[in-house]
Design a protein around this nucleic acid. Structure first.
Lengths: 270, 270
DNA sequence: ATAAGTGATGTACGACGTACACGTCCAGAT
DNA sequence: ATCTGGACGTGTACGTCGTACATCACTTAT
């Protein structure tokens, strides 16, 4: 009856109909766009450049995607496909979740531009694949689905936040064309000026006592372990007391995404 | 001797010299830009619109800021100034950190566009103020500065990740002009099609069993409590064994940002 | 009084996303 | 075998963006 104006983007791809044989498809376009983003950053991705890289006219892209925003969404989902998810979790939820977020972090390093994305929940095939795997990692622990979501969403939120800061720092450096040491030399005079003018006790301690160039991998593992400790406590608490029960340290109930990249589609199918 | 090409951005503001009296300053420009971003989103912030809102010519802005990127950085720091940080922490680190990240989350709701920012570490006055307060919250627990950084950076990373997903979802909805329920109705048919074509056990459980419209505040509190549980374990472990000691569950050493919004300027002064 | 540097402005350039009007080709109906 | 309508690819064009540059107006240091 009613016409569907934006058909979810992922519900297209239909086969060949009338007209000339296609010389372009989603995969080709997306790959070209990703190549540009990897090489020169997300801002360098323009419809003209994407088309140019494939020796096509700019507007030909619009025969296959609705807008640049759609292309970005395709790019995000495509890149998620690079995650080498195991066929099935090992059953060691902590190791499984660690492996997943580590892989996700590596993905962000390989494609730094995904950090810039708004991360609205997508329904792309790879997004769903990741969702399925992530939830599978925490299945069989005696948690209900909302509890499972809490665990994996929290781990993912931490990872995203960490990586975002990490990439921000990298970008700040290479945006100004300086390496980390040059950046220090550059901001140094301003910081000493700050310290002489005002009183910043912790900034001072940071500069004097903190590790100079910590290895990001080590820092990530250390902090991830802290987060997982917290998740483990919850898992234990909710498990021993069985499913559908009050938790140890938190508030009331409710559940589902709100903070997770998860489609909320209940009650929708007819 | 050597000229400083980008003078840290925060090292300007110099007083009036020769020439006509100023009719513009950083605060005025920044406020106008923030007003536009709050009203119509970050993409609506253009130099022309910012200037227009103050009845000035576009190019007059460039007498006060170096580029649009600089303006964005000013906006971010300015908005951080809205955080109502208490004069001093209460000494209850868990409550203090909770209050800080709750406030930060509210800030993101008030100015959804900050989620889109790259979050490269800034040296703005308010960023430093927040840094000082955050570290003060976890002082006196027997942690060295790197341990303190671990605790607050982890809490902040989780918060940023959570909020990012939260805002992404909101934006997805209002971008398409639908409320949450309409969005469900819209994606519903596609999801049921998915479920009938492939096998997605967890997606199915999500749709069938998960809470429909959980209150975001409740979800945030619940997951935050999980993260803080993990931090608490670390705090206890490192505290009882005294400062400068191996930690409970992690790797070797190292420390400092890498995942935190913290200036790394050690060894820089002179 | 004069010189010098600064604030505001107008014009202009290249790049962007994309609406729209074409031509071109092929699968289905005739 | 022919027709035809929809899909594919393209070129042109419009409005918007960031900002380089030249210019004028003004205030202070000399």
């Amino acid at each position: 009856m009613t016409s569907e104006p934006p058909p979810v983007i992922w519900a297209r791809l239909s086969g060949q109909g009338r007209g000339p044989t296609r010389t372009l498809d989603h995969a080709t376009i997306t790959d070209a766009a990703i190549a540009i983003a990897d090489q020169d950053g997300l801002d360098a991705v323009s419809m003209r450049k994407v088309a140019g890289r494939m020796d096509h006219s700019t507007m030909s892209l619009y025969r296959h995607i609705g807008s640049k925003d759609d292309l970005i969404e395709l790019m995000y989902d495509a890149v998620l496909g690079e995650l080498a998810l195991p066929a099935a979790p090992t059953g060691q939820w902590r190791a499984d979740v660690s492996a997943l977020v580590r892989d996700l972090r590596r993905l962000h390093h390989r494609h730094p531009w995904i950090g810039r994305l708004g991360h609205r929940p997508t329904l792309g095939p790879n997004s769903i694949r990741v969702l399925e795997h992530a939830l599978a990692c925490v299945d069989g622990l005696g948690l209900d689905i909302d509890g499972m979501l809490d665990v994996i969403s929290t781990a993912l939120a931490f990872t995203r936040g960490f990586v975002q800061s990490e990439l921000g720092e990298m970008e700040a450096q290479q945006h100004s064309g300086m390496d980390q040491e040059a950046y220090h030399r550059h901001t140094g005079p301003f910081i000493t000026q700050l310290l002489s003018e005002g009183t910043y006790p912790y900034l001072k301690r940071l500069i004097q006592d903190a590790e100079d160039f910590p290895q990001p991998d080590v820092v990530f593992e250390r902090r991830l372990a802290m987060v997982l400790d917290g998740l483990a406590a919850t898992v234990t608490a909710r498990k021993t007391s069985g499913p559908t029960i009050e938790r140890a340290s938190g508030g009331q109930d409710g559940g589902q995404p709100a903070g997770g990249t998860v489609p909320t589609g209940k009650g929708s199918g007819r």
